[in-house]
Simulated assay, not measured.
Amino acid sequence: MNISYISIGSNIGDRLHHLKEAVRALHSHGQIKATKVSSIYETAPVGYTEQADFLNLVVRVETSLDPHELLAACQNVENSLGRVRDIRWGPRTVDLDILLFNNDNIEAENLIVPHPRMGERAFVLVPLLEIAPTIGHPVTGIPFAVTDDDGVVLWKKPEGVEQLLFGE
């Protein structure tokens, strides 16, 4: 079984609903099981800043899919929830990024793992380290650390995967 960590963010419409639906869609896939979910954090946008704040979380999944199949499943979830790619780093109903896949180092045209910018993004590292506090970079082995969590605000702490999947 493969272990992957996926970052999920939303800043359009009912952000919490989009996050929940994304986790539910992953979990309901026949070959993906959500096993841990972080708290939900609110953060200011990065890159293109003329947009609403994001809600972000990280989910740990177990999957029999290979990394490219998991990427396709994530993109299907985005599409099913109305993701439109107009502006790089622009507003979106939902965004799913594969952060880590086992201890693999993948450099393909459409997939780079570990995610190339995760180490500089507190909105990714804070929730990742909440559910995997000792996880390190698969190539260097150096543990990930948050040097500045400025602007990453705890928004809601679900009581586990079940509450996010089945709770209100």
Rank of each mutant, 00 (worst) to 15 (best):
M1E: 06
I3R: 13
Y5P: 06
S7G: 15
I8R: 01
I8Q: 04
G9L: 12
N11C: 05
I12V: 12
L16E: 00
E21K: 00
R24K: 14
L26M: 15
L26H: 13
Q31K: 11
Q31S: 13
K33W: 03
S39W: 00
T43A: 00
T43D: 00
P45V: 12
G47C: 02
Y48G: 06
Y48D: 06
A52R: 07
A52D: 14
A52I: 06
F54D: 12
V58R: 01
V59P: 01
V61Y: 02
S64T: 15
L65K: 11
P67T: 08
H68P: 01
A72Y: 03
A73C: 09
A73G: 10
Q75I: 02
G82Y: 10
R88H: 14
G90W: 02
G90K: 01
D97L: 12
I98L: 12
L100T: 14
D104G: 01
E107P: 00
V113I: 13
H115C: 15
P116G: 13
R117C: 13
G119T: 13
E120C: 03
P127V: 08
L128V: 09
L128E: 13
L129H: 13
L129Q: 11
E130R: 05
T134D: 15
I135M: 11
H137Q: 11
V139L: 11
T140N: 03
T140E: 04
G141N: 10
G141T: 09
I142W: 02
P143D: 15
F144S: 10
A145D: 04
V152M: 01
E159R: 07
V161C: 08
L164C: 03
F166L: 02
F166P: 00
